[in-house]
Design a protein around this nucleic acid. Sequence first.
DNA 1: CCTCGTAGGAGTGCGCCGTACGCTGAACGA
DNA 2: TCGTTCAGCGTACGGCGCACTCCTACGAGG
Lengths: 199, 199
Amino acid sequence: MPRPKSLTQSQVTDAALAVIDRDGLTALSMRAVAAELGMATMSLYRYVTGRDELESLVAERVLGSLDITPPPGEPWQEQVAALLVRLRAAVAAHPEALPLILTHRHDSPGAWRWAEAVLTVLHSAGFTGRQRLVGLRGLVSYLMGALQTDRLGPPSGAADAGEHPLLADIVRQAKDLSPDDEFRNGLDLLLRGLADHLA
Amino acid sequence: MPRPKSLTQSQVTDAALAVIDRDGLTALSMRAVAAELGMATMSLYRYVTGRDELESLVAERVLGSLDITPPPGEPWQEQVAALLVRLRAAVAAHPEALPLILTHRHDSPGAWRWAEAVLTVLHSAGFTGRQRLVGLRGLVSYLMGALQTDRLGPPSGAADAGEHPLLADIVRQAKDLSPDDEFRNGLDLLLRGLADHLA
DNA sequence: CCTCGTAGGAGTGCGCCGTACGCTGAACGA
DNA sequence: TCGTTCAGCGTACGGCGCACTCCTACGAGG
C-alpha cells in the first residue's frame, strides 16, 4: 500500500564501494555515500542499520563473489595456489577496502565458503586435521600480510644504504620483481613446507 | 629563559599508548591523551605536531625497543625464528595498537634495524639476494597476517557445521593449539620452504 | 474517483573529533 | 625591576555518526 522503496541495499553497498575506490577508506562516511546516491544522509538508514552494517556489506560484496571451484586435474599445490591467487585478486581490485575486509573476514559467509574449499583440497591431498589447521592459518596469514604489504607500497626508500646495506639491496631488487611474482614465490615457500609435512 | 616544559614527547607517547592499551585504538584522541596527562587538549601541540606524528611515535615506541641480536651458535632457522618471535611478542604486548604499527612499519627506523638483522642472518646462511627478498617478504607478511588473525580472535563460531564441516573441524581443533604454537608451526612451514631453496 | 493511513525521504540537532588562533602569565637575563 | 619569550590553555570551526521529528505522496478501500 505505501510508497515503494526507491533503492536496494545492494545499490547502497555499491555506492559505498565506489566512494572507497575513488576517495579512499577515510572518505567513507554516511554523508559521502548519500551524496553518491543523490539522497539525504539519513535516508540511508532505511536500507542499512548503520555504518557497521554498511561496512559488513562492502566486505561481503568483495568476499562473496569468489569462484571457489579449484582447477580440476591439477596437483593439490596448484589448486590451493589458484584459490589464494583468486582471493588476492578479488581483494586487490579494491585495495582501499582492505582494512574492512580484514576486520570482517571472520563473519563473512563468502570467506567461510572459500576456506571450506581450501580445506577440501587439503583433505583430498591427505593432510590430517592438525595439518589442515596449520596450513590454512599459515596460508591465510601470509595472504593477508602480503595484501597489506602491497597496499603500503615500497618502504619509501628512506632507509639509508649506509646503515642498512642489505635492506637497501632488497629495495633495489624489489623493483625487478612484480608483486604477482613475489606473492607466488612466497606462496611456494609455504606449499613446499606443506609438501614436506606430507612426506 | 621562558617557562620550562613540564612534559617530554616521550611522556606524551606513553600516555597515548596507555589510552590505547586501556580503551582501544578507537578511543585514541587528542582530548583523551590530554586528559590522561591532566592537561588541556591544545597543550599537546607543544610536544607533537598533530595526531599523525603522535601515531608515528607510538608505533616507533613499540618497534624501536626490539632486541635484534640473534641468538648465537644456533642454526639460521632458529635465529630467524627468534627474531620473528620477538617482534611478534613486542607487538602482541599492545594488540590494540596493531593497525598503527602496520601502517607505520615502512617508515620506522626500528623496523629497518630489525629487517637488516633478519637479512644478515639469511646472508650468512648463504641465501642469494633474490632469495633474501622473497624470504624476508614472506616472513614479514606471514607475521603481520598472523598478528591480525590473533587480534580478531576465533571465527566467532558462526560458520555452521552442516554447510562447512571441515571449517567447523578447524575451529574445534584450534581450541587445543595455543596461538604461540600455531604461530611457530606456520613459521616452520616457511623455514622449511626456505631450507629447500638452499639445497 | 476520492480519501486517508502509513512508508519513507528530508531537516534539525547533539556530542564527538582534529586543530587554527590568540591570550595570559610564568621564568629568567639585564 | 623590567622585557622578552614561550608553555599552557580557552575558544571556535568544520566535519563526522547518528537519533529524532516532521512532511510528503503512494495506493488500497469505499
